[in-house]
């Protein structure tokens, strides 16, 4: 489908926030879902060929937002899209996060993993939860959108590798200290962080949902390029990250089957 870019805002050297108007898209979108975006400007631009997956930050009226980190040619091309121009993308994809009512929940984000957590934070808050956000980054530059979370969360704990803002630690340090107080955890970020968060949760018997980034060609369940393994019963089964995910039970993911992309 097609939308109109309303804003393509530079947050800093590393991140951009894009707002897109599309009544058709917002109709079906849910928190924790993602969208495959055609980064080029023309209909049939062959390079970059594939669409790029991005988490849906939130939906407001007829618009939705994407937070993107500059990585390679697709995301760099996106920075050149001007407000007012058209952009092509898929409908909303994947399973998304499920909200819970009246619980004490933690959100754990690493870097751009913050993107899909804002919408679910709002929903959790509306559903009467106490919400704590643990947000880790390399440095101050990675700590984006934090202000937008404030109205929807009760606690904000920031960590950076260099201490430029918040505690100088990995995000798993403060989260690990507090884990026992939570009923449920939602996490998105680099694989190693998600694995550590899941292990911490498992050892304290706290349910954890992780949103995984696998390299994707189609995003629609057809190419079988995004397979991960999860434990089921005695053995393991294959899942397509794009359809059965991107959100999985962190205690069931076979972490060695998850690729390190990017």
């Amino acid at each position: 489908m097609k939308g109109i870019i309303l804003k393509n805002e530079r947050l800093n050297d590393k991140y951009r926030l894009m707002e897109i108007e599309s009544p058709e898209f917002v109709k079906d979108a849910k928190p924790g879902q993602f969208v495959m975006v055609k980064t080029g400007l023309q209909d049939y631009l062959a390079d970059p060929l594939l669409r790029r997956p991005f988490g849906v930050v939130d939906v407001r009226g007829n618009t939705f937002r994407l937070l993107y980190m500059l990585v390679g040619k697709g995301t760099r091309l996106m920075t050149e899209s001007l407000a007012g121009s058209a952009i092509e993308f898929s409908s909303s994809l994947g399973n998304g996060f499920k909200s819970v009512k009246g619980k004490n929940v933690a959100l754990v984000a690493g870097g751009v993993g913050i993107a899909p957590l804002l919408w679910i934070a709002k929903l959790l808050k509306d559903d009467g939860c106490t919400v704590s956000l643990y947000f880790g980054g390399r440095n101050q530059e990675d700590i984006v959108l934090a202000d937008e979370f404030r109205p929807h969360i009760d606690n904000l704990i920031i960590t950076t590798d260099d201490g430029s803002i918040g505690e100088k630690a990995l995000v798993t340090a403060p989260f690990g200290r507090d884990v026992k107080s939570f009923d449920r955890v939602y996490a998105c970020g680099p694989k190693r962080m998600l694995q550590a968060v899941s292990e911490i949760c498992v050892s304290s018997d706290v349910p954890v949902d992780v949103s995984l980034d696998e390299r994707m060609a189609c995003g629609m369940g057809a190419c079988l390029g995004c397979i991960i393994y999860v434990r089921e019963g005695e053995g393991t089964v294959q899942k397509r990250c794009c359809v059965e995910g991107p959100v999985f039970d962190g205690s069931k993911v076979v972490w060695d089957s998850v690729c390190r992309v990017g």
């Binding site: 390079d47 970059p48 060929l49 594939l50 390299r215 994707m216 060609a217 390029g225 995004c226 991960i228």
Partner: peptide
């Protein structure tokens, strides 16, 4: 085993 796909110039490997 994964990874199974990679985009290349105007194409992809699978």
């Amino acid at each position: 085993l994964m990874p199974r796909i990679m985009e290349t110039t105007s194409g992809m490997l699978n």
